[in-house]
Design a protein around this nucleic acid. Structure first.
Lengths: 163, 163
DNA sequence: TTATTTAGGTCAGCCATATTGACTTAATTA
DNA sequence: TAATTAAGTCAATATGGCTGACCTAAATAA
């Protein structure tokens, strides 16, 4: 059984090769978040704050509900992080047209922090991609997209106006 | 300045495209860890336990020191997780040739859990890769590898005998 | 041979990020 | 008017990290 499976599996799909990908995902994700994490630590913030700042910066006038649906955490979890960001004036709240909702936008201070954090990751990715041709990059992007669950592909398309 | 930069940046390297990759990394990594996390929760373990089980399973007779150098956490952090795994007989400790060191191996129980957890991730990746050709897959693997910091590339090569 | 370094262990306390459950208020919609 | 929705809050709990201090035993260097 095991041997038959090995015979039928193309080399690039065998367990050993896939385990390498598992490890690369672990190592690369850890290295990917390291830069912003260090900056955040200095101002007593964490990765959760970066996520909030990132998506609020991306989508102006995001509501709490929409933000929760992207982050997929409970509102109690979001609450602490968001309150800190609002109290320290990185994020400004205003009432939406539907007066039950609130709109979130980055202040100037928030935009500056967002830029500082994301720039590290953008540069890191750009430096990597510069070493490769468009064929490789397309393979990377396509496969990464398909690694996302269907429900979250929809969410990704939504926030990138690919819907 | 900004305009000049945009003119000089190929379309696939512009900020918007790179931000999509940032988001895909976030979404895909979250979905990637979700399956094992659910199983681990039932037995009161977490992702940290999976990591330990994974690397102990990968590298027979791993020492504590080597494990720490892969995980890059403090020994105090590892301690709780590892003690639980040893107490509940997923991992067996033995004294190394250098009697200061300890060798870690998975018990049968540990191997079974490791398989159950990793199989989810392996299947997920295999199902994705099956939709793509070798050119795309190579692009994906190469770029993922380059996303890892140099020091950790060495670590990756070490544990995969590419050194 | 003694001194130092290394591998591993442990105690205590702290912080960040997440969870569940219960409950409230105000606004909108059926 | 009743039900639903968006947002907020209080409390308790779990996980996974961290720092600092300190210990033992074994190996290695001076």
């Amino acid at each position: 059984m095991a041997d038959l499976n090995k015979l039928l599996t193309p080399l690039f799909l065998n367990e050993g090769e896939i385990r390498k990908i598992i490890e690369l995902l672990f190592f690369s994700y850890r290295d990917f978040t390291e830069g912003p994490d260090k900056i955040l630590e200095k101002i007593n913030f964490g990765r959760a704050h970066h996520r909030v700042i990132y998506f609020v910066g991306k989508q102006k006038n995001l509501t709490i509900k929409e933000l929760l649906s992207i982050l997929k955490i409970t509102k109690q979890s979001l609450s602490r992080v968001l309150n800190q960001l609002v109290n320290e004036k990185y994020i400004i709240l205003s009432v939406g047209e539907d007066k039950r909702t609130k709109k979130l936008i980055l202040s100037k201070k928030g935009q500056e922090l967002e830029k500082r954090l994301s720039e590290i990751q953008i540069k890191k990715i750009r430096n990597v991609l510069l070493k490769f041709n468009e064929i490789d990059i397309n393979g990377f992007k396509k496969i990464l997209y398909h690694m996302v669950d269907d429900k979250n592909k929809v969410k990704f398309d939504e926030i990138n106006n690919n819907g």
